[in-house]
């Protein structure tokens, strides 16, 4: 499987993270999207006309949506990560996409000077983070550790984690969101975890 990838792109990290948890080998095809513009090259646009990363090539099939890639890998290699009978999965994946468009966008503006409305992105991210914190706090009280009820993490955790864990890069904070900090630690300590710059791996002494 070939993953068209850039280290700092959160949706691409989501795929690397799930592959880590599933123990799947990925052949990474690194792209210089900043300050180079490999994602605007004719060659890449022929593969993905939307020009977004990541892209997964699995055999003859090309996947161009990051959440579809997560679903594909989970269905094929780790069905526990894809609880298809729980409608909450759809809701959480939607929230994860909204987080990418707000917290994720703020991070790119505050890191690689990507143009955009920083105040609006942060305001929307604050609302979402508050809601996810509220739900996680009550979930913990009910004995759950993950976004969906159950004992196993899902692709929804991964999809939300890649925007929430590095949110400080965008000027947001988990300081007053203790349930999200505990949930981030559960993801970080899950076997097979791989880091991204800005998302620290568990240290030997923690």
């Amino acid at each position: 499987m070939i993953l068209y990838d850039a280290h700092h792109v959160a949706p691409a990290y989501a795929v690397r993270l799930l592959a880590g948890f599933l123990g799947l080998p990925l052949e990474l095809q690194g792209m210089d999207v900043y300050p180079g513009h490999d994602d605007r090259s004719d060659e890449f646009l022929a593969l993905n006309p939307l020009g977004t990363l990541p892209v997964l090539v699995d055999g003859d099939t090309v996947f161009t949506d990051w959440q579809e890639i997560l679903a594909h890998l989970a269905l094929a290699h780790g069905p526990d990560w894809y609880p298809a009978t729980d409608p909450a999965l759809v809701g959480w994946l939607g929230i994860a996409r909204d987080l990418a468009a707000s917290a994720g966008a703020a991070r790119l503006m505050q890191t690689f000077c990507v143009p955009g409305d920083l105040a609006e992105a942060k305001a929307q991210a604050e609302r979402l983070l508050d809601e996810v914190e509220r739900r996680m706090w009550f979930a913990e009280r009910a004995g759950h550790g993950w976004l969906l009820a159950g004992t196993h993490p899902t692709i929804a955790d991964i999809a939300a984690f890649v925007s929430i864990a590095p949110c400080e890069d965008g000027g947001l904070s988990l300081r007053d969101r203790p349930a999200l900090r505990r949930w981030c630690d559960r993801v970080r300590f899950h076997p097979g975890f791989v880091p991204m710059s800005g998302v620290f791996p568990p240290m030997a002494n923690t």
Partner: peptide, 14 residues
């Protein structure tokens, strides 16, 4: 080189 240096610098940023 760019990817490596960005990876390193983004570890420093937080």
């Amino acid at each position: 080189l760019r990817t490596f240096q960005q990876l390193i610098f983004m570890q420093d940023k937080p």
